[in-house]
């Protein structure tokens, strides 16, 4: 019996995929919107589990992803060349973001490189990513989450799993001006409606 089932779940071209927010219509926020919202649909997502104290595990991950495994809580590492990133979720859990369609090959590569007790799970269908930019982006977050998003507590290169309105989201800060929300598919519509509502006072540009 094989140990684990690895399964290329990509349908490839010809099959119409629908992102969790494919049903919403965008809105233009006037000439100077305070908040700009975009969905970065169809990214690849892998949950990685393993032992950060195992040097071989860390090296193996770095080998495959081309960036070190974040071992500090909430650390976000990015490989801008590959368009990928990895975020600390828990002492033994990370979320890897990949260009859509590369999750299967990445999982295979990780499984080839790693040994011992670890897990890789493809969760690409269950998540989507929203980018929030604009001068009022941080105000919008203050209205939406109880997590402290002040730059002193939330510098670039950090990401947290926390409450978002009445749902849960991962909030990431990949750059000085960009915030990212990773939300679960089933909550995406709710989160989107919340964002639209909370942005009203700032003016929203959401070309989704």
């Amino acid at each position: 019996m094989s140990n684990v089932a690895v399964f290329d779940q990509n349908a490839g071209a010809g099959v119409l995929a629908e992102s969790p927010l494919s049903h919403v219509s965008g809105r233009k926020g006037g000439s100077s919107p305070g908040v700009i919202l975009r969905e970065k649909a169809f990214m690849g997502y892998l949950t990685l589990r393993g032992n950060a104290a195992d040097a071989a595990f860390c090296e193996g991950v770095e080998q495959v992803l081309g960036m070190p495994l974040p071992t500090a809580p909430m650390a976000l590492h990015q490989n801008t060349q590959k368009g990928s990133s990895i975020l600390w979720i828990s002492p033994d859990e990370w979320l890897i973001l990949l260009p859509g369609g590369t999750e299967y090959e990445t999982e295979l590569a990780l499984r080839a490189e790693l040994s011992g007790h670890f897990a890789v799970v493809n969760v690409s269908g269950g998540l989507t990513l929203l980018t929030v930019t604009g001068p009022d982006a941080r105000h919008l977050l203050h209205k939406s989450t109880g997590y402290d998003v002040h730059p002193r507590n939330f510098p670039v290169g950090k990401g947290v799993t926390t409450t978002f309105a009445k749902a849960t989201a991962i909030i990431r800060r990949p750059s000085e001006t960009t915030w990212e929300l990773v939300v679960r598919r089933s909550f995406a519509d709710y989160c989107y409606r919340w964002l639209v509502d909370a942005s009203r006072e700032f003016g929203l540009d959401a070309e989704i």
Binding site: F7, Q9, N10, A11, G14, V15, A17, E18, S124, G125
Partner: peptide, 28 residues
């Protein structure tokens, strides 16, 4: 045309297939 896992289980007592696909392809 979509990679799927199909489970033959039944909650109705009838012949049943549960088709599971990555959610982005469900509508297709």
């Amino acid at each position: 045309g979509v990679p799927a896992r199909v489970y033959r289980i039944s909650f109705t007592g009838e012949l049943t297939y549960e088709i599971n696909v990555q959610a982005n392809y469900a509508m297709h």
